[in-house]
């Protein structure tokens, strides 16, 4: 307002009066309104009994071994049994730790593990970023981070991701890659605590189908029927 210096004092005073009064009135009115608004009584809900929601647990079952007895051809029966076991093997709970790279995947969606981790020399991480930096011996509800005493990646020779069930089958039967004979393989499937974790993964993670005992029975029946692999 460069010009205002030259204008006569009279209109300036008038301008001031016009400018000031409405502001003061508006301020006063606003304060009154604000006080009314603030003091206006509002009722808030109080605590009241609400029954806990019933959680319907949907457990996916495995078919019992007896279901397969009807298949007369032993080889066919063996393959069918392995296909049933494959429902477990191909669940995200198992596949996530059998990646084809040095990096595991995670969640039911099997997206790359976040943060970035790498298998390292022993399958349990790199210096200063070990599996044990975050994963404990048990699932931990407070953080949602899963855990197990043996938490680590399967060796790269046992990569399953991107393989067909037949390829996985031949891979686990090949001691050069699985580092297990059939007896050890069976024990791994039915007794190993890290494998067992697949059925008690905690959090929002979908467990592997069935139970470890049901799975063990299918694996045993598959091996007993010759351990045949799908093509």
């Amino acid at each position: 307002m460069i010009g205002s210096r030259e204008s006569s004092p009279e209109p300036r005073r008038r301008r001031f009066r016009i400018g000031c009064l409405p502001i003061v009135l508006v301020v006063v009115a606003a304060i009154v309104l604000a006080i009314v608004y603030v003091l206006y009584p509002r009722t808030m809900p109080q605590t009241q009994p609400i029954p806990a929601a019933q959680l319907l647990e949907q457990i996916e079952r495995l078919r019992p071994v007896s279901d397969f007895d009807g298949i007369p051809d032993l080889q066919e029966r063996s393959i069918a049994l392995f296909r049933e076991a494959g429902r477990v093997l191909e669940s995200p709970r198992c596949m996530n730790c059998h990646p084809r790279t040095d990096r595991p995947t995670q969640t039911d969606a099997m997206r790359p593990h976040t943060p970035w981790v790498s298998r390292g020399p022993d399958g349990a991480g790199e210096a200063a970023m070990r599996c044990s930096t975050c994963h404990r011996e048990e699932n931990y509800a407070a953080s949602g981070v899963p855990g197990n005493p043996k938490w680590k990646l399967a060796p790269i020779e046992m990569a399953w991701q991107g393989k067909t069930l037949g390829e996985i089958c031949r891979q686990i039967l090949d001691p050069a890659r699985s580092h297990m004979n059939r007896e050890e393989l069976f024990r791994h499937m039915v007794e190993d605590e890290l494998v067992a974790w697949a059925w008690t993964p905690g959090g929002q993670r979908t467990p592997a189908p069935g139970t470890q005992a049901e799975f063990g029975a299918i694996i045993k029946a598959w091996l007993d029927t010759g351990g045949e692999c799908p093509r």
Partner: peptide, 12 residues
């Protein structure tokens, strides 16, 4: 409450 203007530019 529609009144209190805190502005950089206006002194009043």
């Amino acid at each position: 409450g529609g009144a209190l203007v805190v502005g950089y530019t206006a002194t009043h």
